[in-house]
Amino acid sequence: MKTILLWLLLLASGVALAQSNLEINTPAVAQIKSAMAVRHGQLAPHYASGALGLAQDASVQLRDPNAVPLAQRAAVQAAVAAENNDRTALYREIAKANGNPSWETDIRSTFAQRWIDKAQPGWWVQTAQGAWQKK
């Protein structure tokens, strides 16, 4: 009986550990993250101007192209496309790193909420109804 209780305790602690963290320290995740951090320097002014917004689907959207000076528009469009590719890859890699590729959709919606929650005042975010709103 005592041994069984010990086993139960051990199993329970294993469950608790498995629950506490997601694996995000993989080379693939690190690489995507640093590319995104560098790109953020280019995108940040356009979040502030309202040209870019954080969408409900965890992507970045060029919601007002006219807010970007014409000379920069193509470069910003390319950066947004690259950012969204990286974001999709990031969600997929985290799901994969945790042995559950099917979690990708859940991870994407978790990120969608957190990008929006952490957006700075003045940035544009999309509401659940699809409307754009200035924070």
Partner: peptide, 24 residues
């Protein structure tokens, strides 16, 4: 537990990554 999505852990992971990407 391993099949169900660990929402709290995912939120924590997302926060950590967003802080790094946005250098918060």
């Amino acid at each position: 537990i391993n099949i169900y999505f660990p929402a709290a852990a995912a939120e924590k992971a997302a926060d950590k990554i967003i802080d790094e990407v946005w250098q918060l």
